[in-house]
Design a protein around this nucleic acid. Structure first.
Lengths: 188, 188
DNA sequence: CTATACTTTCAGTAATATCTGAAAGAACAG
DNA sequence: CTGTTCTTTCAGATATTACTGAAAGTATAG
């Protein structure tokens, strides 16, 4: 007899809805550079709302112990999942933030730090490689140099504005829940 | 004798700066779900600023003809690169938009359509699976159902606000160049 | 100390994504 | 039509990433 046979109808329906969410979230994760399993574990923790132990995750998602352990560790390192120790329990439990805004602000902060900041830095480095000091006067007239300078300038502007917008999002989300939702809708 | 030996110093320095940009852009692409080659080709077209033919790309990035052809096609389908036919030339040339804002708005529009809209739709579908009509009265008291409903509602709010913000970005960027930069900086 | 309950690690394997190069196709000139 | 030049396609090779399961590790209870 499977687990499902023992459940009342409402529980089956609940599980179906949760599974649909989990599957979608997993798919989306892939196209955003998070692997499917990690995204699914995260979705499971988010959607059930209560702390789960490793075995619950293993059973529900049909993945190996090793994979579960590594993925949970990754999620914890990212800061969007936390470990919970319960008195008198040997097992550890895991849960996500309940506030989505806070959760995404953690993700945004991490990606900004790891990916956006270094790119901006690299672009500015490229600009320095082509400034007057580095190239001398002979370069000024060259159309290829002029073109590349223009392109770098355009990208630099975009990335630095984006970075600042991102920082605003991060700061506001941390400050408090869905206050940012109202702010964003009003602003744009 | 290599290509580089024949170039004046300025050209060597220009090439070095361009290469640095291309490498970074390729790395960034990977973490955002675009493969390295595609991102590098795009970076090359962007940074040189003038239309290039397939052979120029092949020589500069050391990739195969096949890969170049497929990647260029992908970039064209995405809408961020366009083909150019020159009279009297049998070869085709390729170029990117010069306006970064417009470029990213195309990317944003495509990803919103392909990834964000379906997720929002899926979440709303999950909510319908758990509403009063679907579950009946017996479900109202269950704390697991209540929890999942709350979580779905939180996610739904986040995704729908994000979607609207995204749409605003897309509309404004299309309307005109870096006007959006000023708008964004003032708004937040 | 040993037994028990649980977690982590990691070598090996499986699955996916990416790339190449050669062959076929298309467009044009003469 | 033929020859030339360039493009596309795709089967197979390669590289990358993800996953498993068993062994080693850790913590607690007794």
């Amino acid at each position: 007899m499977s687990v499902i046979d023992a459940m009342p109808d409402v529980a089956i329906q609940l599980r179906a809805a949760q599974d649909a969410f989990i599957r979608r979230w997993g798919e989306m994760g892939q196209t955003w550079g998070i692997n499917r399993t990690m995204a699914e574990i995260h979705a499971l923790l988010y959607i059930t709302g209560e702390p789960l132990c490793a075995d619950a995750v293993i059973d529900r998602l049909n993945i190996s112990r090793g994979n579960t352990s590594m993925s949970l560790r990754g999620l914890c390192e990212y800061g969007i999942v936390r470990r919970i120790h319960r008195r008198g329990e040997r097992r550890e439990f895991f849960e996500t933030h309940s506030d989505v805004w806070e959760m995404f602000s953690l993700i945004a902060a991490e990606r900004k730090r790891r990916e956006m900041d270094p790119v901006l830095e690299a672009i500015q480095q490229c600009q320095r490689m082509l400034d007057a000091k580095a190239l001398g006067k002979s370069a000024a007239g060259r159309s290829d140099v002029r073109l590349t300078r223009e392109r770098l300038a355009g990208m630099e502007e975009f990335m630095s504005v984006t970075n600042r917008v991102c920082q605003q999002f991060i700061d506001n989300a941390r400050a408090g829940g869905s206050r940012l939702a109202r702010l964003l809708l009003k602003a744009l």
